[in-house]
Design a protein around this nucleic acid. Structure first.
Lengths: 128, 128
DNA sequence: TTTACTGCAAAGCATTTGCAGGGCG
DNA sequence: CGCCCTGCAAATGCTTTGCAGTAAA
């Protein structure tokens, strides 16, 4: 098991992530932390997030724009994303969570989290 | 319903995608097409893929590196991705497909495809 | 003192956009 | 003739890396 030996930056990132109730980008975190007395370099934000991700404390979903959104590993939040306007609808259930254990054993793989996204057209964009 | 009025580029992209039995990046497609008599600009590749995506002929999954992989909408291929080494294991089943209809009706959303990915550590990387 | 973390600025990469030339109806 | 497609090159934006200063052990 990996030891959660955290740097000061990692701790601050985790605390900041707790404040948000949504996934946020590294840039968002940087902007947020910048408002406090002790700021933090953008590179440090990225390095801390990378470490936390591998450690299993943080999960990532990458948008089709290439931007990555980070959040604490805790909930199963999944979305319907419109390919036209980019809008998202959040689902309130997860049909996959129960399968993690099965795959974990079957493939000898330590699963930290999963990402499930549906893509298509929202009602408004489909009408056009 | 959107009309599948395709440009020459879009047709060539679709034909090229059929050749691959895996998801490929826009850069991959560009390199592949470049080997033929009539090449195609990189920007055109991106524009064609964007159009095909919205039209519902092509699906995308974006890696945590920011690179996007494209493929025809046809199969339910999902992966276990290692956060350490980046390796992937392909799953041969999909527990979500059946739910698309339900969500489609429930949220008034035309679902073209979905992306399901599991992240964690593979056996080798977990041992370290 | 030795090691690891941090910040800044520069570099890297995939993707997007502006614009002029070209093909097709 | 006019419109859309195309290609090239420049620009954009997120992320990573090099390096020197700094804090921690």
């Amino acid at each position: 098991m990996t030891t959660p030996r955290r740097t000061r930056s990692q701790t601050r990132i985790l605390e900041s992530l707790k404040q948000f109730d949504r996934s946020v980008s590294a840039q968002d975190l940087y902007a947020e932390l910048r408002q406090h007395e002790k700021s933090m370099g953008l590179a440090t934000v990225y390095r801390a997030l990378e470490a936390l991700k591998k450690e299993g404390a943080v999960q990532v979903r990458t948008l089709t724009t290439g931007e990555s959104l980070y959040s604490l590993i805790q909930e199963d939040r999944h979305h319907l994303t419109c390919l036209q306007c980019g809008g998202t609808i959040e689902l309130d259930c997860c049909p996959v969570h129960a399968l993690e254990k099965q795959f974990s054993a079957q493939y000898q793989f330590k699963i930290n989290y999963h990402v499930l996204e549906f893509f298509g057209l929202c009602q408004g964009c489909a009408e056009v």
